[in-house]
Design a protein around this nucleic acid. Structure first.
Lengths: 188, 188
DNA sequence: TGTACATCAGTGAACGCGCGTTCACTGATGTAC
DNA sequence: TGTACATCAGTGAACGCGCGTTCACTGATGTAC
């Protein structure tokens, strides 16, 4: 049965949002089109009225995930504050709402080019933001790019490792240690 | 046609080796049983004479990959030397022979328990080794566990990020910057 | 404003391909005599 | 040492399930008069 144009647009957004969440939580291949549509309260057949293919959705959902994430890092949130939120069990346990870099890390290489492009753009924006924070706060702004790379690697690595560690207390310790070591080593 | 017991054992090893390589290079789900068997110069039907299932092979191959990797880090190789090899385009471009942590990072959560267990064991051994190197070389041995976590996160994060960066020169810069920042920050 | 009809978003059955797994068969191995 | 036969590793066709995608159909929307 047909629905109103507004309703259809709402559905489109719901599908994109469901995809951005599920892809991050279960991976691209681990998420079925039917799952996404069910999450959006629709049946799978309606999918192809909204997107040309699962792969096309993957690219849009990747972009969406980065957008949401960068929006959530408001300009009032400093790098130390952001790290305090990022390197946490809370973030570890919510991959669906979490950092797309950590979520798609190894999956992305096996996706089609358009998905990789979106990922690429997201990573660049993310690193730029870190670099800017370092430059704003610190003295040696020439080093801020290099430092940003290292800090980003550490952030992503910590979440990825924490997620793959079954022992929850060991996993939490890993996060805590990493967070405090960053503070000491980079003085942030 | 039947082959000798030695030949069969050789085939078993070949399958395991092919799996350890291909799983790292293309992921668990991205690698077909047929591909593994072809790499081992056999046909897919023979697989189930050697392993009960693809999943069982995944666990063995994961263990194998860690074993190979840790064996390659001989006792004569110091942490700085190991980092010089790890955080490189060479490593980035050879996931099949590379670090299983970086290769399986996000995949592992979607595998069956036995595979996760093997991964877990491997990560622990790896971190222990880093921690020992730090304790041996440094003064503050109480901090070496925490530092080891951070360094491991950074190593894994750097390779994962470098692999997902399409622009090769940007990717190489990221590695170079991360390697040198670690030296400065941790004095190693 | 009310009615008739064309449009088109959504439904759910069905298709088809890929891949893990099974199985009847083959023929070399290696054991029994 | 040589021969006959049972064993069993490997082969490749076939099975079956899952999942992305298609399609005929439905019925509410929204336009034309």
């Amino acid at each position: 049965m047909k629905v109103s144009k507004e309703q259809a647009a709402e559905h489109h957004r719901a599908i994109l949002h469901a995809a951005a969440t599920l892809f991050r939580a279960r991976g691209f291949d681990g998420t079925k089109v039917t799952d996404i549509m069910a999450e959006a309260k629709l049946t799978h057949g309606a999918f192809y009225g909204h997107f040309r293919s699962k792969s096309e959705l993957a690219a849009s959902a990747c972009q969406q995930a980065f957008e949401d994430r960068l929006d959530a890092w408001g300009p009032d949130i400093s790098l130390p504050e952001y790290l305090d939120r990022y390197i946490t069990p809370f973030h570890r346990d919510r991959p669906g709402q979490g950092c797309p870099i950590a979520a798609f890390a190894t999956d992305i290489a096996r996706q089609e080019k358009p998905v990789q492009m979106q990922f690429q753009i997201g990573v660049s924006l993310f690193r730029k933001r870190i670099s800017m924070e370092l430059a704003a706060a610190g003295k040696h702004s020439t080093e801020s790019n290099a430092k940003a790379s290292t800090i980003l690697s550490t952030m992503v690595g910590a979440i990825v490792l924490a997620r793959s560690t079954i022992d929850r207390s060991l996993s939490a310790r890993l996060l805590k240690e990493t967070r405090s070591t960053i503070t000491k080593q980079f003085a942030i």
